[in-house]
């Protein structure tokens, strides 16, 4: 077996561009997931069951749906059924973001639960409104608690983002598949793509580990 290095040296620019697209998809999806997750977590924090219900249903639904299924459903299904066509990259960000939003909401929820009830009582007793209380007291603590878990979730999103090429997003794996079809050198292209992915996820996993020690709550 001979490893054809030329495949990589000749294509390094393509590899770079495709990697950037993968990162782009992952970053946007993370943003969607954080927005969705925070809203859902706040809804679930409500004591009113009617407010809670949609959030519960959302989480239950999206946690049981494989990304691959949702991606195809959204991209191809909606186009034909509702004449609603997304660009591939939009469909990718939406599906990855909406699914991860369900997981992010659980992370935010655990962050909310970690804030002691006494903080709410103290906030109200000095006359803060609900909005002020959340903005100034509760959420800053939540964000700090969820940092490590969020970094972990990003690793999951990055791994999920490997399949978006299936609907035609020109990401790293799509490039690798295309190039393989052209050159018939699957080992070179898939190995390189794999190494890029693994090193990315490892970097973020290490970051998550670092953040975990950095932002650990210490009891006073």
């Amino acid at each position: 077996m001979e490893f054809d290095w030329r495949m990589i040296t000749d294509n390094w620019q393509n590899f770079l561009n495709a990697t950037l697209i993968t990162y782009y998809v992952a970053a946007l999806s993370m943003a969607v997931a954080m927005g969705v997750g925070l809203v859902l977590a706040l809804l679930r924090a409500s004591r009113n069951p009617i407010v809670q219900a949609p959030a519960r249903i959302y989480v239950g639904f999206f946690r049981s749906l494989p990304l691959y299924v949702f991606l195809l459903w959204l991209y191809y299904g909606f186009k034909v059924a509702f004449n609603l066509s997304f660009q591939a990259i939009q469909a990718a960000v939406l599906s990855l973001g909406l699914i991860s939003g369900a997981y992010m909401s659980e992370i935010f929820r655990s962050g909310l639960l970690a804030v002691d009830r006494g903080q709410y009582e103290a906030g109200f007793s000095i006359g803060l409104t609900m909005g002020q209380l959340y903005r100034k007291v509760v959420l800053p603590q939540v964000f700090r608690t969820v940092i490590p878990a969020t970094a972990n979730q990003f690793v999951g999103i990055l791994k999920g983002a490997t399949i978006v090429g299936i609907i035609g997003v020109f990401d790293l794996m799509y490039f690798a598949r295309n190039a393989t079809a052209r050159t018939f050198k699957p080992f070179e292209f898939y190995s390189t793509a794999g190494i890029i992915f693994i090193s990315s996820t490892l970097v973020f996993a290490a970051l998550a580990g670092y953040l975990e020690t950095r932002y650990r709550w210490r009891r006073a």
């Binding site: 077996m1 490997t162 050198k185 699957p186 898939y190 190995s191 996820t201």
Partner: peptide, 18 residues
Amino acid sequence: GTSLYVLILWVFFGLSIA
């Protein structure tokens, strides 16, 4: 750190040629 999609393509197509 590896996703199934990457691994399965690598094993199925990559290793078979290499």
